[in-house]
Design a protein around this nucleic acid. Structure first.
Length: 222
DNA sequence: AACTCGGGGCA
DNA sequence: TGCCCAGAGTT
């Protein structure tokens, strides 16, 4: 397990690797952020950005999403997977926002999680990014990176990863830490064939050391 | 804990 | 072609 100081070093190095790790999501208002994150489940950020670009020109408010038939909304997001569920969830979600929260996005993680299509990860992203509520969203990237580096244990659950990160990272940096780890996981510490040999964190990384040893051996046997 | 949803991207 | 992807909901 890495110490706080080692984690500090990792996060600083990652910040240097991705100086513009400001997700586009940061620039949106809470409502658009919520829609974007709901859409992003199980598909890549690039694909979602392609859809939201035109989507947000057409739909500005929860009412806008309810003023079109479901079939029309489905067509508008059809290029991403799970569009059947997602379009239904978005209309239900908008209805709930109007009926329960006067059309506003609630600034509360538990209330967010009651919305259809919003789970723990989405609620944490919206809460921390849009409302500056202390929370760390753990997605597959954050989980994988944390486990490989040795920030947490391999067998830890998502909740345990979340707890560990909150314990070992200063509260003011929770939001940006989430984004940095995602960028690092998406573009460098990839799920398949991570390029450990060109990784600035190799000297600290539990999994990286294991993998590079394997590489040396396989090169020798060639 | 395991299963399902799902089209696009990429090797 | 086959495999994977910013998860969530159900069983």
């Amino acid at each position: 397990m890495l110490t706080k100081k080692e984690i500090r070093y990792c996060l600083d190095e990652i910040a240097r690797m991705f100086p513009d790790a400001q997700c586009e999501l940061n620039h949106r208002n809470p409502f658009e952020l919520l829609i974007a994150v709901v859409l992003s489940a199980q598909c890549t950020d690039v694909l979602v950005n392609k859809v939201t670009k035109t989507l947000f020109e057409k739909y500005k408010t929860p009412e806008d999403y309810l003023n079109v038939p479901l079939e029309e909304l489905q067509q508008d997001i059809r290029s991403i997977g799970l569009w059947r569920n997602k379009s239904k969830n978005i209309q239900k979600l908008c209805k709930m926002l109007i009926e329960k929260y006067d059309g506003e996005v609630p600034a509360d993680r538990d209330l967010l999680m009651e919305l259809p299509g919003v789970g723990r990860k989405t609620a944490n992203v919206v809460a921390s990014v849009a409302f500056n509520i202390p929370a760390i969203a753990v997605d597959t990237h954050v989980e994988r990176v944390s486990k490989r580096l040795g920030i947490c244990r391999w067998k830890d659950s998502v909740l345990q990863v979340e707890e560990t990160l909150m314990k070992k990272v200063p509260k003011e940096e929770w939001g940006i830490t989430h984004h940095r780890l995602i960028f690092f996981g998406r573009y460098h510490c990839k799920a398949q064939n991570p390029n450990c040999l060109e990784c600035p964190l190799l000297s600290l990384c539990r999994e990286g050391k294991k993998r590079t040893k394997g590489l040396e051996r396989s090169n020798e046997t060639k």
